[in-house]
Amino acid sequence: MILTNLPIGETAKVVSVKGNNAVTKRLMEMGVVPGVAVKVVKTAPFGDPIEIRLRGYSLAMRKSEAEAIEVSE
């Protein structure tokens, strides 16, 4: 499942980060690597970006960027 499909408030484990570009690299550097648990916290008022929580902190990203993140069901 893609992270953007995860309902708000739900937690899931990252399976993979697809692609090899500046965005995926930054995501991984920020700790979004296979195996980590992430929770979708909220979406911004205009529907984008989204806020997720992982490793005890909050990270914001655009939906287009979150699409690179695959999480377990």
């Binding site: 965005v23 995501l27 806020e51 902190y57 909050s58 990270l59 914001a60 960027e65």
Partner: peptide, 12 residues
């Protein structure tokens, strides 16, 4: 330029 990553910490 390709849209730069927005990926950003929301600090406490």
């Amino acid at each position: 330029s390709p849209p730069p990553p927005f990926v950003m910490e929301l600090p406490p």
